[in-house]
């Protein structure tokens, strides 16, 4: 049963992703790609768990690398997405 629950999560998440993206206008493709790039930065929590129960020095080192890379993914993804979205303005909203 456990395995099937996971399978359901996979299936529903896949459809959700498909649905969300299929309605996005072309002008937002880049921010959206960069935004989804940010969202998979959630790998950070996994990296922290992996490092948090690492036993040998080697495992700790690889765990450290995982956390470092994940933090870069999350923070970098956020910063560039935010910067891009800030620029999108319609001719209606003049400063």
């Amino acid at each position: 049963m456990e395995g099937f629950v996971a399978l359901y999560i996979f299936m529903l998440a896949a459809f959700t992703g498909y649905e969300i993206i299929s309605k996005v206008p072309v002008i937002l493709h880049t921010p959206l790609m960069s935004g989804s790039n940010f969202v998979h930065g959630i790998v950070l929590v996994g990296a922290m768990v992996a490092m948090g129960h690492a036993e040998t020095d080697m495992e700790t080192a690889v765990g450290f690398l995982a956390v470092l890379l994940a933090a870069g993914n999350a923070v970098g993804g956020y910063v560039v997405t935010e910067r891009m979205l800030e620029m999108f303005k319609s001719s209606g909203d003049k400063k």
Partner: peptide
């Protein structure tokens, strides 16, 4: 959280 976020991004991508 990783499963859902990861797969959503995977299918969107």
């Amino acid at each position: 959280a990783m499963m859902i976020a990861g797969i959503v991004v995977g299918s969107a991508g």
